[in-house]
């Protein structure tokens, strides 16, 4: 295996860093995101989520039949503030 393998290319999280977090006792998708920063870049986890979960399954840390991705945050794709500002409704939504 090459010396440095990247799990998350947006935030430069390497396999070594992921394994380091696991050695500290972390094993869940949500907490590994928050310890390594994985999945918080422009792709919002679209590239790295499956790599992360495969790794956790391979290491026997999660059950492949029940493991969930981390909470998906809106918007689905990056949207400019200009476009969002133009969409302000005239009346506040209830």
């Amino acid at each position: 295996m090459p010396r440095r393998s990247f799990v998350c290319r947006c935030e430069d999280v390497t396999l070594l860093e992921l394994d380091h977090a696991i050695e500290l006792g972390l094993s869940e998708v949500e907490e590994l995101k928050r310890y390594t920063g994985l999945g918080t870049g422009p792709c919002q986890g679209k590239e790295c989520m499956s790599v992360l979960v495969s790794h956790l399954v391979r290491r026997g840390l999660v059950d492949p039949t029940t493991v969930q991705p981390f909470t998906a945050r809106p918007p689905t794709e990056p949207v400019t503030l200009g476009a969002l500002a133009a969409g302000l409704p005239a009346e506040p939504e209830s």
Partner: peptide, 8 residues
Amino acid sequence: AQLRVLRQ
């Protein structure tokens, strides 16, 4: 106005 929101 050109800045893109990634998540909320």
